[in-house]
């Protein structure tokens, strides 16, 4: 995975510790005996590990309740798999934009960084727009939170994922804004990398959710 390789190269070519790193002792020395990851990066990995269980629990609930809907529309009647595949593809492509944005900021190429970070955010926004369209479409066809267990577990799981994507978009746009103001020098490349970790994670989670919800054969087929 590209991210991990970059982590390795980053340490050797480390720019001076940016203040945001939050070393309690003001950038002296460097972290302890086994610092393979800087503090913020390690913290982000830990948060993502924790978030895995967050989605894991929702996905478990979804799997438990598959095929248990008693009335109202069922997944087979509602899903438009080509449409959702298209928006999923757009979300996955946004990860490429993220990689290119990170490469650009590490080179110090701010113009390209802003281009790619904006493209990533727009791809993400397209995905969210697709999700909103899908939600309204399902709602129109009679599925809401309180229709049946499918409605409950589908909307809550994909809704929380969508909320994660929205947070990510906000984060990317903030980085774009900071870059426009000239506050995002090459020494801040790590904060872009961390945003990237989050973004890729949200994408990877979507691959799992998409597979579980849309691609696995529906019960009763």
């Amino acid at each position: 995975m590209a991210i991990i390789e970059q982590t390795g190269t980053d340490v050797t070519a480390a720019p001076p510790s940016p203040p945001e790193q939050g070393h309690g002792h003001g950038g002296h020395g460097g972290p302890g005996p086994s610092a393979a990851l800087t503090n913020p990066k390690l913290a982000m990995w830990l948060f993502l590990a924790s978030d895995c269980l967050f989605f894991g629990a929702f996905i478990s609930a979804y799997l438990l309740y598959r095929g248990r809907e008693q009335d109202g529309p069922t997944p087979r009647e509602l899903f438009d798999i080509p449409f959702t595949s298209a928006t999923s593809f757009i979300l996955l492509m946004s990860s490429l934009g993220m990689v290119l944005a990170l490469a650009a900021i590490q080179r110090g190429d701010h113009r390209r960084f802003r281009l790619w970070i904006m493209a990533t955010a727009l791809f993400g926004a397209t995905f969210v727009a697709g999700q909103i369209f899908e939600f309204t479409e399902f709602y129109r066809k009679g599925l809401s939170l309180d229709t049946n267990l499918f409605g409950s577990s589908f909307f809550v799981l994909t809704g929380f994922h969508g909320a994660h994507v929205c947070m990510g978009i906000l984060w990317l746009l903030s980085l774009w804004g900071m870059s426009m103001q000239g506050r995002l020098g090459p020494e801040k490349a790590e904060s872009v990398e961390i945003a990237g970790l989050y973004w890729h994670f949200v994408d990877v989670v979507w691959i799992v959710i998409f597979t579980v919800i849309y691609l696995m054969p529906q019960p009763g087929t």
Binding site: Y65, N148, L149, S152, V156
Partner: peptide, 11 residues
Amino acid sequence: GTLFFDPAAGG
């Protein structure tokens, strides 16, 4: 109004 833990709805 979700039905996660509502036995009547299969929860």
